[in-house]
């Protein structure tokens, strides 16, 4: 998946934020200039911006609502977003809010996106509501791609049930996502798994550290 801008879209709760944070950290290994854009206007808790201090410590630029409005229940898209999508010096990850309502934001950034070297990646967790069959998933792809006014370039299998995920679950997800790929013609980039799980399937593996967790 070669690109300068990586944009994660998908249904609500499919794992876009975890993927965005982990992708930004992975990109940081090969570049000094990495930005993570949080334009999630859907989730009230558990967002990329919650890890702002940690990411900035790794020298990853986090673009989100201004500090004083970070906890506001408001859909804030700061003006720098367009800049970091366009800036050729930066490798940029974009964490988009869930469902078509979240993807609408991308539609409004269309004039920046058109000329950017970008990949739009659709994240799938088959253990989430309204996402368990090929039909449901391809319908979601269609809806989100229309709201975002963008073609989806890749699918990602992020199927998991949190800490209780088994390799069998990941395999089930992989099978369904591959069938969706066949139906839609959209290739699958990889399967993402928790760093503590050992799994080898048909697809490349992206190991992730989990960030969105509770204090207890």
């Amino acid at each position: 998946m070669d690109s300068r801008v990586f944009i994660y879209v998908g249904m609500f709760g499919s794992g876009k934020t975890e993927l965005s944070i982990n992708t930004a950290i992975a990109l940081r290994k090969s570049s000094n200039k990495v930005a993570l854009i949080d334009i999630d206007i859907i989730s009230p808790y558990f967002r990329s911006r919650d890890e702002k201090a940690f990411l900035e410590n790794l020298n990853i630029k986090v673009i989100t609502a201004p500090e004083r409005y970070m906890l506001a229940d408001l859909p804030i898209i700061p003006p720098e977003v367009g800049g970091y999508i366009s800036n050729k010096e930066f490798l940029t990850v974009v964490d988009v809010g869930g469902n078509e309502d979240g993807a609408i934001v991308l539609g409004s950034l269309n004039h920046f996106l058109q000329n950017a070297d970008k990949k739009i990646v659709f994240v799938v967790n088959v253990f989430r509501p309204f996402s368990s069959t090929e039909e449901e998933i391809s319908r979601n792809i269609d809806k989100i791609s229309r709201a975002a006014r963008c073609r989806i370039d890749y699918l990602v299998n992020n199927s998991n049930i949190g800490p209780e995920t088994t390799t069998n679950d990941i395999k089930t997800g992989e099978e369904i996502v591959l069938r969706v790929s066949k139906m839609t013609g959209i290739p699958v980039a990889f399967t993402s798994i928790d760093e503590n799980i050992d799994y080898k399937g048909e697809l490349p593996i992206f190991r992730m550290k989990r960030f969105m967790k509770n204090s207890w």
């Binding site: 709760g13 967790n125 253990f127 989430r128 509501p129 998991n160 049930i161 949190g162 209780e164």
Partner: peptide
């Protein structure tokens, strides 16, 4: 089969 759910979703479906 277990699902990964938000509290609000689990309550609604239940």
């Amino acid at each position: 089969m277990k699902m990964l759910m938000k509290g609000t979703e689990a309550i609604a479906e239940a």
